[in-house]
Amino acid sequence: MYVKTHPPVTVLYSQHQTTLPQLSQYIGTVVKDLCAEAVHHNALISGAPLWIYHGMDGKPDTVFTLTIAIPIQGQFQPSRFAIKQLPAFRAVTHTHEGAWDTLAETYQEVMHHIDAHKIPMTEECREVYLNIDFQQQQYNVTQVQMGVI
């Protein structure tokens, strides 16, 4: 676990108002659609998919903003999505290996580290999906990034 400032990145993205129980409807589908749009416009997909959470507090009924994005290089006019540059992002970063049903444990570890070191947090967190394997979930690799000041 470490604090790192991640560089700015240009992304093709889709934004949603959702709750924790509703997240499953976005798994696999939105990223495929984003990739198809980027390929259609001959853009380079230049990084791993991101899920960016704003205002999520871990409670099942809280509505928050979810941005699903893929880093790209190349300018074009998207038909279904939008393009923006994400600013540099300072975060406590920790890698989760394995099934996503144990991701909450990784978040607890990160939160414990933040609390123990009295690091002020922002309201943004990100998940970067370094490896996605729906058939053998033990091979998933997800980088959890909790925004800090």
Score class of each variant (00 low, 15 high):
Ile70Val: 15
Ile119Val: 09
Pro60Asn: 02
Pro8His: 00
Leu20Met: 12
Thr102Asn: 02
Thr65Arg: 09
Ile27Asp: 14
Thr102Met: 00
Ala91Met: 05
Lys59Asn: 12
Gln15Asp: 04
Gln138Leu: 04
Thr18Tyr: 06
Val110Asn: 03
Leu50Tyr: 13
Thr65Leu: 11
Asp61His: 13
Thr29Ala: 07
Lys84Tyr: 03
Ala38Thr: 14
Val148Tyr: 02
Pro87Gly: 11
Thr5Val: 14
His16Cys: 00
Ser46Leu: 12
Val92Tyr: 05
His96Ser: 08
Leu130Glu: 01
Lys4Gln: 13
Gly74Gln: 04
Gln17Ser: 13
Gln22Arg: 12
Asp57His: 04
Ser79Asn: 09
Leu50Met: 14
Gln145Ile: 00
Val11Asn: 15
Ala36Trp: 01
Gln77Trp: 01
Asp33Thr: 14
Ala38Tyr: 13
Leu20Gly: 04
Pro8Ile: 07
Thr18Pro: 07
Arg126Lys: 14
Ala99Cys: 09
Pro120Val: 06
Thr122Lys: 03
Cys35Gln: 15
Gly58Ala: 08
His112Gln: 15
Val30Thr: 11
Gly47Pro: 06
Gln77Glu: 11
His41Pro: 01
Pro21Cys: 12
Glu105His: 10
Leu34Ala: 04
Val63Lys: 13
Pro49Asp: 12
Thr5Cys: 07
Thr106Gln: 01
Pro71Gly: 13
Val128Gln: 14
Gln137Asn: 03
Leu23Cys: 08
Val148Gln: 02
Lys4Arg: 15
Thr19His: 02
Trp100Arg: 00
Tyr53Ser: 00
Val141Ala: 09
Met146Ser: 03
Ile149Ala: 10
Ala48Trp: 06
Glu123Lys: 08
Tyr107Trp: 02
Ala43His: 11
Phe81Arg: 04
Ser14Trp: 03
Lys59Thr: 10
Phe76Ile: 06
Pro7Ser: 14
Ala116Cys: 13
Tyr107Ala: 01
Thr67Arg: 12
Val9Leu: 02
Gly47Ala: 10
Pro21His: 15
Met1Tyr: 10
Leu12Asn: 06
Tyr107Gly: 04
Val148Lys: 01
Gly58Val: 03
Pro78Val: 07
Thr62Trp: 13
Ile119His: 12
Gln135Asp: 15
Lys84Glu: 13
Val128Pro: 01
Ile83Phe: 02
Pro49Ile: 09
